[in-house]
Design a binder for these strands. Structure first.
Length: 577
DNA sequence: GCCGTTTTCGGCCCGACTGTTTTCAGTCG
């Protein structure tokens, strides 16, 4: 998995460096497209031969050879040569707000500036003004951007951005009561993290820009026009507001929701039909006569497509599937009948069994698995066999007392570093459901970690693998793992894989969950709740599942309780060994 | 460098905003 990202990085860097050299822009785009494609491919591209590589969209003869070269040697000659032409830190410049390839190339060529530090020194010394096209304002902007880069993270968890969006939109709505506001961009597509916040305002007066740029969250205004403004919020998040007239609502929603790759593919499709698409509508290319603009449905329809849900708009095959009428009916939050992963005060949860059960019921769930930690997690007061069974008895007792919610007595059992389970088989066999998770020794080699998970899957009492890659968004990389091998075993054993809904986990991620489903594995969507308020987190797991093209049938906990029980691994296969 | 219901050659998505330009280039999304 991670080597897909490594390959993509070499290709993307090649594109960046080609840009510095002012190479053919279409060649640059080709490298960038291929990088994107590979980063979003679920299977390990390293295992593909040239013919298989060329089946990937945007990968032709040359790029297939480049990719094989990267797989075999760890780098591509073309990349190595480009790297040698510039200081290794040159790409820092390219990623700075307001600095693009032209500026970076110019300051490097004329002033020998090859790093952020160089650039800052030159700007402070007033040397940038000697470069054509650079004045005092540009210099000040660059100094500011450097400062901001050092102070702020570059990406934010999407649920946090969603909160910010809601607060901001509430105030904008007061300023323009008749207008219609929608968060668009990556937020609407259900992404895990956001680089910025995009808000679309339909039917608002131009004075709305005052409310936006003057909002109390705004640290400074990056740019402001009649229909578009950008601001930097306190904390470093950039927010963009776009104003469009009501007649362009659908076109603007479509355009600003993206993704960029989806929109480019869609415009391609428009051109092939003699149409042109922009944020104001779909038009006849020859006569400029409007064809569609008021709703997204009308625009897709005019392009011969059904509505494509925003979560699918990543140019991962959704346009072909739409054209073929084979888009999935995506899972929705209301399809979920149960939550399968929750903690209580018995270990590191904040609420007791009954409080959690009532909160789950209030959240509209029909069943809840209580899955506290096992003994290896000493700092969470993890349960040994004796406590686990006593806890299970209490869960069942509470379950018998409560109406409208069925409780399952489970455990989140640690997978020890050697792959053995943290609790004895006869204890696990007594429980209704077992999640097996890695919480320690994250730095094992890929082969060791892969064996560890395969051993866990081989244990007949393991029903679900919890947060299977261990990543923490923006904080911790997934552990090294041969996911292909793990998927193979999970499919063969009938073990489900979790989509953990914690906002910093979303683990499995969209690409991995889609691949797992394609391999015949059933997924679960679970909160990993540690308090009564956590059931609302299911929303984020559902978003990841939708981005993975999952339907309700692909997810175990959409089933009614009896069907759910029957489809657990322990009830499907003999538990003897 | 990719790609083909116009095409194996000649195309390749499109518009807003800013700063420096005296008519437009660079950046961004």
């Amino acid at each position: 998995m991670s080597d897909n990202l490594a390959i993509a990085r070499v290709l993307a860097e090649t594109a960046d460096l080609l840009e510095l050299k002012e190479a053919n822009p279409f060649k640059i785009r080709a490298y960038r497209n291929a990088a994107e494609t590979i980063a979003n491919t679920g299977e390990r591209v390293a295992a593909f031969d040239e013919a298989r590589l060329r089946e990937l969209p945007g990968v032709g003869r040359d790029l297939a050879a480049r990719i094989r070269e990267i797989v075999e040697t760890g780098d591509a000659g073309v990349h190595r040569e480009l790297v040698a032409e510039f200081p290794p830190t040159i790409l820092e410049l390219l990623h700075l707000q307001g600095v693009g390839p032209k500026t970076a190339a110019t300051v490097y060529r004329e002033l020998g500036i090859g790093s952020l530090d160089d650039l800052e020194r030159a700007a402070r010394a007033g040397q940038l003004a000697s470069v054509r096209g650079m004045g005092p304002k540009k210099t000040a902007l660059i100094l500011r951007a450097i400062d901001e880069r050092r102070r702020h993270a570059s990406r934010y968890l999407a649920p946090e951005v969603a909160d910010t969006a809601a607060a901001l939109i509430a105030r904008l709505q007061e300023a323009a009561p008749g207008a219609d506001f929608t968060p668009v961009g990556s937020l609407r597509r259900g992404a895990e993290t956001c680089g910025d916040l995009d808000i679309l305002a339909v039917g608002a007066p131009p004075s709305l820009m005052d409310a936006f740029t003057g909002d109390r969250l705004v640290e400074r205004v990056l740019g402001r026009g009649e229909t578009k403004a950008s601001v930097l919020l306190h904390g470093g998040l950039q927010a963009d507001l776009r104003l469009v007239p009501p007649g362009s609502r659908g076109a603007a929603l479509q355009y600003f929701t993206g993704s960029k790759a989806h929109n480019i593919a869609l415009r391609d499709r428009a051109l092939a039909r003699g149409l042109t698409l922009n944020e104001y509508g779909l038009f006849d290319a020859a006569t400029s006569a409007p064809v569609a603009s008021e709703t997204e449905e009308a625009i897709y329809a005019a392009l011969g497509l059904p509505f494509v849900p925003p979560e699918l708009r990543e140019n991962r095959g959704e346009i072909d599937a739409a054209a073929a009428g084979s888009l999935p009916r995506l899972i929705e939050r209301s399809d979920l009948r149960g939550d399968l992963h929750a903690h209580t005060t018995a270990t590191d949860g904040r609420d007791d069994i009954e409080t959690m059960a009532l909160a789950a019921r209030a959240a509209g769930l029909e069943y809840l698995a209580i899955t506290d930690h096992s003994q290896a997690l000493a700092m969470a007061n993890g349960l040994d066999e004796r406590r686990a069974l006593a806890h299970a008895a209490r869960v069942r007792e509470v379950g018998r007392r409560l109406d409208g919610i069925t409780l399952l007595a489970g455990i989140e059992c640690d997978i020890r570093p050697d792959g053995t389970m943290d609790l004895a088989d006869d204890c696990l066999a007594e429980l209704d459901l077992v999640i097996a998770s890695v919480h320690s020794a994250f730095n094992q080699e890929a082969s060791q970690m892969t064996d560890r998970l395969r051993r866990a899957i081989a244990c007949p009492y393991v029903d679900i693998i919890g947060h299977p890659t261990g990543r923490l968004l923006l904080r911790r990389e997934p552990y090294q793992l041969d996911l292909d091998a793990v998927l193979h075993d999970a499919a063969a054993a009938g073990v489900a894989l979790e989509i953990n809904s914690q906002i910093e986990r979303r683990d499995l991620n969209d690409v991995q969950a889609r691949l797992a489903r394609d391999r015949g594995i059933t997924l679960t969507i679970a909160t990993d709740a540690h308090a009564r308020g956590a059931f609302s987190l299911l929303r984020w797991g559902v978003q990841t599942a939708r981005r993975a093209w999952l339907t309700a049938d692909d997810v175990l906990n959409t089933r009614p309780i009896e069907a759910f029980r029957a489809s657990l691994r322990r009830h499907r296969r003999p538990a003897a060994r």
